[in-house]
Design a protein around this nucleic acid. Structure first.
Length: 480
DNA sequence: TTACATT
């Protein structure tokens, strides 16, 4: 039969009753059927143009059921606009085959915007579902079985970790939006898989934009922005903002240069938005609060603080040489936080002691349902420090007052957000192998170096403030 | 006490 109904109802469907086999009458032969009956209620109030209404094909209906039996069955899931049982043109008999005793089949009718030609086809983002909270034991076939009742599955992929183990989630791509919507309505939250921590998640897979947002948020999380305390007060907030500004500027200029796809422009806009929010001290709001907070002030920080890498930027390659625009330093510190010692009276901000702790965030970024992220955004390949020592004049920074535990890698990490770091070197006492608390960072362009100075000179770490200056030119002060 | 690519 055919049934036209609203798709808005949240499916409380017991999915088990909707499992299917691939059989059933051919919906294509339906043109001449009788037995049309309208839904209950005042028909005039039912918007027939409801874009969310879809026509479903129901197969495997027991022969002895007719419209009046079937209607209540489906009303549970939404308003029914139209319900038609397909009957044989000549005999008036049910189209269902005799002796059919299988679970009924429910899927959007073939007439429902099933893309035939590629130009009419709906974008994959509207047909593709993300399925979370699966049992890790469930295979592609299991998932298919769960979803095939609602339409033609073009693609079904379980997300797996490097070890091949399921992450408990999957993508299911249908041929049409309507099919996907039907599956959401019926399956989302409908059941809890054994071993899953909550009920089945069925939703449209992220669009590019949403993915970008996620990436932004993840980036923000890695930068420690998830700690609301750090934002309005600590100099770390300023650092994070500097990163944001820098990255926004970088991404924007890259996008404008036509080197990247429009996503970059969007991402840049998001960054700027986030940075702007930070100015108002509202930063935490759009961020995803992930796990806990920072190491409480006063607690000894882990031995080797690692500044998280700004994955978004590092992931981009082929940057134009002048991509690193200079962020407006004034704007960065518009909230009154200024890293310069002279303007930062609170010399011993205890929050700074949590610095390393904040950076240490390494827990799972998202609950299992978001496992797709790690697949969608593989970590950029680790940066291999270049052999070359020094950049062109004006590109080399001298940094003093580094934390004792900072090594080359940490130094690089700290300055990576401001541009392409071509080398980083912390000086080590050759006798003790201890850091001498100073080092050099070289960028591939002077603008990055200037930006880094603006953002990092005076940046407080623990009880110290970084000194970041251009390295003295080799021939400076040389008498002749 | 503030050091500039170390042997």
């Amino acid at each position: 039969m055919y049934i036209k109904m609203a798709t808005l109802a949240n499916g409380q469907a017991d999915n088990a009753s909707l499992s299917t086999n691939g059989l059933g009458g051919s919906p294509g032969s339906a043109g001449h059927m009788n037995g049309l009956s309208h839904s209950p209620g005042n028909p005039s109030t039912i918007p027939m143009k409801d874009h969310d209404a879809i026509k479903l094909f129901i197969g495997q209906i027991p022969r002895n059921l007719d419209e009046k039996d079937l209607k209540p069955l489906f009303e549970e899931f939404g308003k029914i606009y139209e319900l038609t049982v397909l009957k044989d043109r000549f005999t008036g008999m049910h189209k269902a085959l005799p002796g059919m005793n299988r679970p009924i089949q429910v899927k959007p009718a073939d007439s429902e915007s099933r893309g035939g030609s590629s130009c009419l086809r709906q974008p994959p983002s509207h047909r593709k579902l993300f399925v979370g909270m699966l049992n890790k034991q469930q295979s592609e076939d299991d998932v298919r079985r769960l979803f095939e009742a609602f339409g033609n599955i073009e693609e079904c992929t379980i997300l797996r970790g490097p070890d091949g183990n399921s992450k408990g989630c999957a993508f299911v791509k249908y041929s049409s939006h309507a099919e996907a919507q039907a599956a959401i309505n019926a399956l989302h939250g409908s059941q809890t898989m054994p071993g899953a921590s909550s009920s089945l998640v069925v939703k449209f897979a992220d669009t590019d934009k949403e993915r970008t947002m996620r990436r932004m948020q993840q980036m923000a999380g890695q930068m420690g922005m998830f700690n609301p305390m750090a934002i309005p007060f600590g100099a770390y907030g300023a650092y994070a903002q500097a990163l944001m500004q820098q990255q926004a500027a970088l991404m924007a200029s890259v996008a404008q240069g036509g080197y990247l796809n429009p996503m970059a422009a969007f991402a840049a806009a998001q960054m700027q938005q986030m940075a702007a929010l930070n100015m108002n001290g509202l930063a935490a709001a759009p961020m995803t609060p992930t796990s806990g907070g920072s190491t409480p002030p006063g607690i000894t920080a882990p031995a080797v603080p690692s500044i998280p890498s700004p994955i978004g930027v590092n992931g981009f390659t082929g940057l134009p040489p002048q991509a690193n625009g200079q962020p407006a330093a004034e704007a960065v510190f518009a909230n009154g936080i200024h890293p310069y010692p002279a303007q930062s009276p609170t010399a011993a901000d205890p929050l700074q002691q949590a610095y390393a702790g904040v950076q240490q965030y390494a827990g799972p970024a998202y609950p299992a349902a978001y496992g797709q992220i790690s697949q969608a955004f593989p970590q950029p390949p680790p940066m291999i420090p270049q052999q070359q020592r020094e950049g062109p004049e004006g590109c080399n920074l001298f940094i003093y007052h580094l934390p004792q535990e900072f090594g080359d890698a940490e130094l690089m990490q700290m300055f990576l957000p401001f541009g392409n770091v071509i080398s980083s070197k912390v000086f080590v006492d050759r006798a003790t192998n201890q850091s001498k608390c100073f080092g050099f960072v070289s960028f591939d362009n002077p603008a990055s170096a200037q930006t880094a100075i603006q953002a990092m000179n005076g940046f407080q770490i623990g009880m110290k403030r970084l000194k970041v200056q251009l390295k003295r030119p080799k021939d400076a002060n040389r008498p002749y």
